[in-house]
């Protein structure tokens, strides 16, 4: 059982990284008032771009960089549409997801059979010796460590730097921010592009570090979960961390459950009644739906529990901004 828990914890930490990266990017973008529903598409583009680059050059850091850059490129379209052209943020985002899925299926078919050696496992000496949590937290890939590092960095950026506070201000009250001399358009562009970089990095992590392979559609809705995660996290980087581990755990549990036999013995009371139920609940196909069900539950719960005025949603989210004087 200790082995199972240690394995589960290790898998959770590894599965959480993608949610941390994509979630942090979404927090920054939404804090500036721009909802990005294109995360899934950006992740796919980042995953394929990073993978293809690594296959060609053999350099996984370069691959990670390219994946991140492609995320920025897609985010640039989103920024241009939503900030400059004032298009509908929901439509633009969904469209980018569809476009990203289409592009990566079109260009990605031929890369499926390739194999790479992606980010290797690294361990932090001494700390890795701690039983159970040591191997989980202190033996990971570079991108896992990077994601954890980016949590305090994002927090510091948003709440402790001028640039970050200006970013929040254009998401809360762009008019006021403009009056105070903040360039609303520039802050919003920056936030959306940074969000795209995080999403691209999340995708590149998925193909280069987490699974070390490429399959079209491999993100499997994780980008959408990240969007919901941000609401759960109340737009705070620190709570993204908690949410990411929650969803990482569900992801990991499903992967590990194949080795799990959770039925009552033949003689046990109620065995005939409970075993079919247990078989259903712990069937791998059914368990694979738990992260999605949990997303719905968490989303409904968070929004329903918090009255709208208490919900930390940036006041100017979904609003385009145009200056009064032309």
């Amino acid at each position: 059982m200790t082995g199972f828990i240690a394995g589960l914890l290790d898998a959770t930490v590894r599965a959480a990284t993608v949610f941390i990266l994509a979630g942090l990017g979404e927090v920054i973008s939404e804090r500036a008032g721009v909802l990005n529903l294109g995360v899934e598409g950006m992740m796919l583009v980042g995953a394929l771009g990073g993978f293809a680059t690594t296959v060609v050059t053999g350099n996984y850091w370069l691959g990670f960089l390219v994946g991140t850059g492609l995320g920025v490129l897609l985010a640039l379209i989103h920024a241009f549409l939503c900030i400059t052209l004032k298009s509908n943020q929901v439509i633009s985002g969904v469209m980018l997801t569809l476009l990203g899925a289409g592009l990566t299926t079109f260009f990605g078919q031929s890369w499926v059979e390739n194999s790479i050696s992606g980010f290797p496992q690294m361990s932090i000496p001494v700390l890795v010796e701690i039983p159970i949590i040591g191997p989980a937290f202190f033996q990971s890939t570079a991108t896992d460590f990077l994601a954890i590092l980016l949590i305090p960095v994002s927090w510091y950026f948003l709440f402790r730097t001028n640039l970050g506070l200006e970013t929040i201000s254009v998401g809360e009250d762009p008019e006021m921010a403009d009056t105070m001399g903040v360039n609303v358009f520039r802050r919003r562009y920056l936030a959306v592009l940074v969000g795209g970089a995080f999403a691209g990095a999340a995708g590149a992590h998925l193909s280069l570090s987490f699974s070390q392979l490429w399959v079209p559609g491999m993100t499997a809705g994780r980008g959408w979960i990240a969007v919901a995660l941000v609401i759960f996290a109340q737009w705070r980087p620190s709570r993204v961390f908690v949410g990411a581990y929650l969803f990482g755990l569900l992801d990991a549990f499903q992967l590990r459950s194949q080795s799990l036999e959770l039925t009552l013995g033949a003689g046990a009371p109620l065995a005939d009644l409970l075993n079919p139920v247990l078989n259903f609940l712990f069937h791998p196909t059914i368990m694979a739906t738990y992260p999605y069900l949990a997303t719905i539950a968490v989303l409904s719960y968070t929004v329903a529990r918090t009255k709208t005025d208490q919900l930390a949603v940036p006041s100017a989210l979904l609003q385009s901004y145009s200056r009064e004087t032309e």
Partner: peptide, 21 residues
């Protein structure tokens, strides 16, 4: 007040899983 974009996407995955099972 759960945003329908997210819930419907999630329910797609659930539908496919349940139907498959």
């Amino acid at each position: 007040d759960a945003h329908e974009v997210i819930t419907t996407i999630m329910l797609n995955f659930v539908a496919m899983g349940v139907a498959f099972y």
